[in-house]
């Protein structure tokens, strides 16, 4: 029985008149790796910040039933500026002291060959993200929240970043919640995929299952109306249909070829479907 590490209960966040996160409830377990995807402005970042405690929901609660304190939650974002006047070393020492850490991990940082004496103010976004990651890894948190930073780093360091995260997952059973727009590099890591749209989760599935329940059909003409699909788009002379939920019996019943799709396409399909819904309510 996996222990619940985060229990989100009916969280609602409004900014101004707009409801950004709309009555979301969720339970995350220890050691789970979760991916949250969705169209721009769907509330993913805000939701993540709620988990981090950086935004306090207007309604509902975020409970850490396992006693996870702020010391054991880490939030990485490209907006995270730290203290601009600090040098890298000062930031590390500060972090070490505040969080009561025994030692700091310089791994990823050293990998990038960064100079410790530089002021944070002078670091690029990518460099800052790496610094954040180093701080996060040193903290060995129970919960790691990663907010759209993967694509900010160059591909080489990106790989190192992911390796570091995986390391953490294995070593500390860290629950990792990843918010990202691109999935090709990360798609094999999360076990659970959530798609957020308009402040709600429209998809909450195990990654593997998702792969099996969403298939693509490329057809010259309209497919049978009995087949449920969430999105369709023209592709040259053909039309692509993203069938969901797919059942294995469909391959027998219908003459179409149900192709497997990668996570990128899956998410794109869901997002595309959302945009279509918005256009034709």
């Amino acid at each position: 029985m996996i222990k619940t590490i985060v229990d989100v209960q009916g969280v609602r966040v409004k900014i101004g008149k707009k409801t950004i996160v709309d009555d979301v409830s969720l339970r995350l377990g220890r050691g789970e790796a979760i991916l949250i995807a969705g169209p721009n402005g769907s509330g993913k970042s805000t939701f993540l910040k709620c988990l981090a405690g950086v935004i306090l929901p207007d309604r509902g609660k975020v409970i850490y039933p396992n006693g996870t304190t702020a010391k054991k939650i880490r939030f990485i974002s490209d907006q995270l500026s730290l203290f601009e006047n600090f040098s890298v070393r000062q930031a590390m020492n500060f972090h070490k002291r505040i969080f009561g850490l025994k030692q700091m991990e310089y791994g990823v940082f050293a990998e990038a060959g960064m100079d410790e004496s530089r002021k944070i103010r002078h670091l690029s976004t990518g460099e800052r993200t790496l610094l954040n990651l180093s701080l996060a890894l040193s903290q060995q948190p129970d919960v790691l929240l990663i907010d759209e930073v993967i694509h900010v780093i160059d591909p080489y360091l990106r790989e190192k970043f992911l390796e570091a995260v995986i390391d953490l997952m294995d070593r500390c059973l860290t629950t990792v919640i990843l918010v990202n727009h691109t999935f090709s590099e990360v798609e094999k890591i999360p076990e659970r995929v959530l798609v957020m749209a308009d402040g709600r989760f429209i998809v909450d599935e195990q990654a593997e299952e998702l792969g099996m329940r969403l298939k693509k059909v490329v057809s010259e003409s309209e497919i049978s109306p009995e087949i449920p699909f969430i999105f369709s788009q023209p592709a040259g002379p053909f039309i692509e249909y993203f069938v969901y939920p797919f059942g294995p019996e469909m391959s027998d019943r219908f003459p179409y070829e149900f192709q497997a799709v990668d996570l990128n396409q899956i998410i794109k399909a869901f997002i595309g479907g959302q945009y279509v819904q918005k256009r034709n309510p």
Partner: peptide
């Protein structure tokens, strides 16, 4: 497990 996961960018559970 850890090394293979890191290498293949897989979840260690996998």
């Amino acid at each position: 497990i850890r090394e293979l996961a890191k290498l293949l960018k897989l979840n260690p559970n996998t």
